[in-house]
Design a protein around this nucleic acid. Structure first.
Length: 832
RNA sequence: GCCCUGGUGGCGAAAUGGUAGACGCAGCAGACUUAAAAUCUGCAGCACCUUACGGUGUGUGCCAGUUCGAGUCUGGCCCAGGGCACCA
């Protein structure tokens, strides 16, 4: 790297943030100050990553907060000697671009790329220490080529498959809707109810990794507890048993999953999901009509209607019985939409006495309720609600008297020995549906050949390019399917003409691996060089919104695991530490166009400069908490930066670079106090950043220090201790206000960029002040205070406290029964 | 319904079990100024007493508890925000 030429073209005396910022941004870019040499392994690596933005058109304050936090961390780490990778890119595929195409007749690519141009300029104005040479955009061919490669990688490993699946369907628009387009069960465009329709769709087999995704959670010590918990709940592991119930008089067995095999003697009926394939097969002729009607009604129901937990349960009997393999009892089989086809086996055994849902259903349809678990202290009253806790087994034949936990195990063992069931672990996590009937996404690289069936596109034929000759106004299918140039391609196996898959991928696929591409963005032969990934992964600090707690973060973990299985990556977890920053609010609610409470970052840059914006967005709240934007407080930050400027410039003549410090022991009076202040500030701020990134308290410590500095008289000639204080202040502020500190650093005679300096060190022996104020309490109540030299011993403190006139008066006739002394802090007298 | 997070001045918030409210915003008073802005200095939880200096009481959602001492620890409750929601 060339040595940056540190010349200010400005030579100004007053703080003019806009001029300073533009100047330094240009210099830094010219000198490549923020480029990272990933091959340099002399320094320890540090990978700081922000969740990349969707190029919606303009930056919002949430972005400013997110990227400022990561930027400060990146700069802080660099000043600690790390080789820091801090990239930026664009999550550039997605629906808004397609809507713009329909509404304004602009091609999605054009809309997206011009948004990127604009937002990149905005981000540069924020002064991020980002290596822009590594920028990626998921909509560019040299990126989505490798997203397609990822798809094929998963396909070849049996982790991508196609099956019929119900999707959100709007009958009005004749189109499939993405989940995000379904608002409260209705179509976002015409408000009509969304129904389920079966379509053939591509899935990723994330369920294969359920156990690993769950098991690794405790390893992620640097993640917020609540994110780990949300993922755990999402995967929702339950252990129980799969039991096969025979259908009476038929050679058919129905498997059910239950977490409570111990309650199996209490089964009084069985329920199939409406979508269960056996419904059609086993329904008795007398009941076929009512059952068909029920299935028809269910189909018309929206997700919202069907999933409402407070609604009355519905269902119809199939007119046929199942045999409980434990008791030989025949119980009726029903069909009801409270049973979900997607979970377990799509069939349940119903134990109304010990399951709330079954209880509600049985009560409504007057089905028998048989109690098999007794709670301790049971007195034989009829059940008014299901008893779902553990207890002692009754009415359970040979198992009577067992507690439910052992009963559970014994029941499973019996089923296994008799061959009608087995122990089973079940997860709520479903496979990831990645097909989207949309244009603006990564085309799925698959061909359908009449002779050879489903055939993957060969790696050397990637990328499968998005066609341009499409009609965006079609309904009921992906606009890609309207392209005549796209529709067909030669089959790689037989050479005949094959049909191309016209669906594109969910944009979460694009974002599941982008952090890997940043490490090796120009690789044309592989998605990335594994050696570099080994060196740079995992991401040391990931920063982004809590809204991605489940989807993006789980998908990325899945990708890493799948890639690590064949050695493409060494690590199987992508993000070592995660910081989820809070929202930016205005007047107590989220900034939004409809509320008209948006604060435009551009306006803030223009009026106050980026350094003020950065300083403010870190000031008032800790990063994890929501942040309330307040215009007057921004002004306060701007004033503070002006004040720092003045404080430094007013005493410019007394500040020298690298003046040798006298020995601390020899310092006296104000000089000694100033040195203590400086050390205390450095130590405090360093600790605040290192533990939990408490930037809000960093800001108050900076202000306290500057308030103090304003009162210090540095004398008439260059002063080493004062210089040390000012230089430390500038370095402490450098990650937060990079432009202003750089300019001041230069004006003070710094030869190299302040951003290449080491983080200031502190002398821990010089932190404590020479005097301590001692508080005197009586029975814990503050009564007096006095000042002593620091380190005054206990007995002296006690004596001094007892001598105080005020204290004597308070004690009066009472007896001092106990004295607690905390050196340098307080004396507490216990009196009676 | 279940899970999580939080509740401290007018507001944003700080506080290894040890002076509650640092720091800031808004406010008030003063200095500078012809004036305003900017800047600087000071005041500031609430209530009461005192001409004043100062003092007393009270105070971190509510109720108990542990402790010489609790915003902080324990138990119970209330409220707000968020997530999940018929997952067998």
């Amino acid at each position: 790297m060339e040595t940056p030429t540190h010349k200010s073209i400005l030579q100004i005396e007053s703080y003019q943030p806009q001029a300073i910022e533009a100047n330094w941004q240009q210099r830094w870019e010219e000198t490549g100050l923020h480029t990272t040499d990933t091959s340099d392994s002399h320094k320890p690596k540090y990978y700081a990553l922000s969740m990349f933005p969707y190029p919606s058109g303009r930056l919002h304050m949430g972005h400013v907060r997110n990227y400022t936090i990561t930027d400060v961390i990146a700069r802080f780490k660099r000043m600690h000697g790390y080789n820091v990778l801090h990239p930026m890119g664009w999550d550039a595929f997605g629906l808004p671009a397609e809507n713009a195409a329909i509404q304004n007749n602009i091609p999605p690519s054009e809309w997206t790329l011009s948004n990127i141009e604009y937002m990149r300029k905005q981000l540069k104005k924020l002064g991020l220490a980002v290596d822009w040479d590594r920028e990626v955009a998921t909509c560019k061919e040299d990126y989505y080529k490798w997203t397609q490669w990822m798809f094929l990688y998963l396909y070849k490993r049996g982790l991508a498959y196609k099956k019929e699946a119900p999707v959100n369907w709007c009958d009005q628009c004749q189109t499939v809707l993405a989940n995000e387009q379904v608002i409260d069960g209705r179509c976002w465009r015409d408000d009509s109810l969304v129904i389920k329709k079966k379509l053939s769709q591509w899935f990723f087999k994330i369920t294969d990794y359920a156990e690993r995704l769950l098991g690794n959670l405790p390893v992620l010590e640097g993640w917020p507890e609540r994110v780990l918990l949300m993922q755990k709940n999402w995967i929702n592991k339950s252990s129980g048993a799969e039991i096969h119930f025979a259908v009476e008089g038929r050679d058919i067995k129905i498997p059910i999953f239950t977490t409570r095999p111990d309650t199996i003697f209490g089964v009084t009926y069985m329920v199939l999901a409406p979508e269960h394939p056996l419904v059609e097969l086993i329904v008795s002729e007398d009941y076929r009509e009512t059952v068909d009607q029920y299935l028809e009604n269910t189909k018309l129901k929206s997700d919202l209607e069907r999933q409402a937990t407070d609604k009355e349960k519905t269902g119809v009997p199939l007119g046929i019985n199942a045999i409980n393999p434990y008791t030989g009892e025949a119980v009726p089989i029903w069909v009801s939409d409270y049973v979900l086809m997607e979970y377990g086996t799509g069939a349940v055994m119903a134990v109304p006495a010990h399951d709330e849902r079954d209880f509600a259903f049985a009560t409504k349809f007057r089905l028998p309720i048989k109690r098999v678990i007794e709670k301790p202290g049971f007195i034989g009253l009829p059940l008014e609600q299901a008893y779902t806790e553990p207890g002692i087994l009754v009415n359970s034949g040979e198992f009577n008297g067992e507690d439910s936990d052992t009963g559970k195990l014994k029941m499973i063992r019996l089923a296994e020995s008799k061959g009608f069931g087995k122990e089973k672990i079940q997860y709520r996590l479903r496979d990831w549906l990645v097909s989207r009937q949309r244009y603006w996404g990564t085309p799925i690289p698959i061909l359908y050949c009449d002779k050879c069936g489903t055939v993957p596109v060969l790696d050397e034929h990637l990328p499968v390019r998005l066609p341009k000759d499409v009609d965006f106004n079609v309904k009921g299918m992906s606009p890609v399917a309207t392209s005549s140039s796209f529709r067909q391609a030669p089959c790689p196996t037989c050479g005949g003409m094959a049909r191309r898959e016209t669906d594109t991928m969910d944009t979460f696929v694009d974002s599941s691996w982008y952090y890997l591409r940043y490490i090796d963005p120009y690789n044309t032969t592989k998605p990335f060089e594994p050696q570099l990934i080994h060196q740079w992964m995992p991401v040391d600090q990931y920063v982004g919104g809590i809204e991605h707690a489940i989807l993006h973060l789980m998908y990325s973990r899945f990708f890493m695991m799948a890639l690590s299985d064949s050695g493409w990556t060494e690590q199987d977890e992508p993000f070592k530490n995660l910081l989820t920053q809070g929202m930016v609010l205005k007047d107590g609610s989220k900034m939004s166009k409809s509320k008209g409470n948006i604060v435009d970052p551009d306006e803030i840059f223009k009026e106050f400069g980026a350094d003020t914006a950065r300083f403010f967005i870190l000031s008032d709240s800790p990063p994890q908490a929501d942040f309330d934007w307040k215009d007057s407080a921004v002004e306060g930050c701007s004033k503070f930066l002006h004040r720092v400027w003045r404080t430094v410039m007013d005493h410019k003549g007394k500040i020298g670079m690298d003046m040798p410090l006298p020995n601390y022991e020899d310092m006296t009076g104000e000089t000694r106090e100033l040195f203590q202040w400086t050390n205390r500030t450095i130590a405090g701020i360093t600790k605040d950043i290192e533990t939990q990134f408490q930037f809000n308290t960093v800001m108050s410590k900076l202000r306290e220090f500057v308030n103090y500095l304003g009162k210090v008289n540095p004398g008439d000639s260059p002063n080493a201790v004062y210089s040390h204080a000012i230089c430390s202040l500038l370095k402490l502020m450098a990650p937060i206000a990079p432009h202003m500190t750089e300019e001041l650093w230069f004006l003070l005679g710094g030869l190299d960029s302040i951003h290449l300096q080491s983080w200031p060190k502190w002398d821990s022996s010089a932190i404590q002040a020479d005097h301590a104020e001692i508080v005197v309490q009586i029975n814990g109540k503050l009564r007096d205070r006095f000042t002593v030299p620091a380190g005054t011993d206990r007995s002296e403190l006690e004596a001094k406290a007892l001598q105080s006139a005020k204290i004597k008066e308070h004690i009066g006739e009472q007896q001092v029964v106990k004295v607690i002394v905390v050196p340098d802090k307080l004396v507490n007298l216990v009196v009676k």
